[in-house]
């Protein structure tokens, strides 16, 4: 096997995986930035949108439209979650916020089991998304889903970057994340900012969920759990609350996992998740504020 081609293949894999992590992590970081909430229900936004897409395409809606509608459903779920569960506990201690989101994820996942049953369903990935491209006699292969996830992630993340640095609403979000009271004093509508933040964060999760489902071919009620945990790691490593940090953390994590699976000894591969979390704990000891040092915590 040619090692250069192998490396290129692994880089493609890392970018594809990192893109998914980054898209979930930005949402976690946006919400954390403003509300200081560790949002465990964020992963379920991946699930609600994907189920909506499956349902709509089963009803005969063309796939691209079903995807867009699915993302809208994710965003809507996020807005409803904020309205119904999070707004009443806003300003409560961290633990209360965290537990509320934990309870909400339990409700949403079991609601999905109640409505759609717990068994996996196939995701109607169209053939053009599963098209395989092979180079160098199959040493480098990727599918259209890989290309689509990476490009849509990069484009949408660039779009988000432009939004938070050029629009008044985006600047307002960063302002509110830094100092909620001062943001209220300059006349920003905090409720509106929070709703928009949830809509964007959940929309990104929805998009990530579609791409995740397109790659794995199935959806299930707890499909958001594992990527959510990875996204937490990405967001924390990047500096929880920093959007750029979350993107960086996402791609770093993608690279790390591919490094373990692709280049590490084969016995290590199944321990990938354990290694990631062990490294997170070690990382937090030395840099509790993340790479970007977005917020410093009390150190013991």
């Amino acid at each position: 096997m040619n090692s250069l081609e192998f490396t290129i293949q692994q880089i493609i894999n890392a970018v594809s995986l990192g893109s998914l992590y980054a898209m979930v992590a930005v949402g976690l970081s946006m919400v954390f930035g403003i509300l200081k909430m560790t949002n465990f229900a964020h992963g379920d936004m991946m699930m609600t949108g994907s189920y909506a897409t499956v349902l709509l395409s089963a009803l005969g809606v063309p796939f691209p439209i079903a995807i867009v509608a699915g993302i809208a459903v994710s965003a809507l779920t996020g807005i409803l979650a904020e309205r119904i569960a999070y707004r009443p506990v806003r300003g409560a201690p961290d633990v209360t916020l965290l537990l509320t989101s934990l309870a909400l994820t339990y409700v949403l996942e079991n609601l999905a089991i109640l409505i759609f049953s717990g068994s996996p369903r196939s995701f109607p990935t169209p053939d053009w998304m599963n098209e395989v491209f092979a180079f160098s006699d199959g040493a480098i292969t990727f599918t259209s889903v890989d290309i689509i996830s990476s490009t849509s992630a990069i484009l949408s993340l660039l779009g988000l970057g432009w939004f938070v640095s050029h629009t008044t609403t985006g600047l307002g979000m960063r302002a509110a994340a830094e100092d909620m009271a001062a943001a209220a004093l300059v006349g920003l509508d905090i409720n509106r900012l929070i709703v928009i933040a949830f809509a964007i964060a959940s929309g990104f999760a929805g998009l990530a969920g579609m791409l995740w489902a397109a790659q794995s071919g199935i959806i299930e009620p707890d499909m958001g759990f594992s990527p959510l945990l990875k996204a937490f790691v990405a967001a924390i490593v990047g500096g929880f609350g920093s959007i750029a940090g979350a993107v960086l953390g996402g791609y770093l994590l993608g690279a790390l996992e591919i490094l373990i699976v692709g280049f590490g000894p084969t016995e290590l591969s199944p321990y990938r998740d354990a290694i990631v979390f062990a490294l997170l704990i070690v990382f937090l000891l030395f840099r509790p504020g993340g790479i970007m040092q977005a917020n410093r915590e009390v150190k013991l």
Binding site: V233, I281, P288, V298, L300
Partner: peptide
């Protein structure tokens, strides 16, 4: 290491412990 951490990240890190045990 875990009890040295504080604030928002400790719950994710302790949950990481559950994942590690599971794996």
């Amino acid at each position: 290491p875990l009890m040295r951490l504080s604030g928002h990240h400790v719950s994710v890190a302790t949950m990481g412990f559950m994942i590690i045990v599971n794996v």
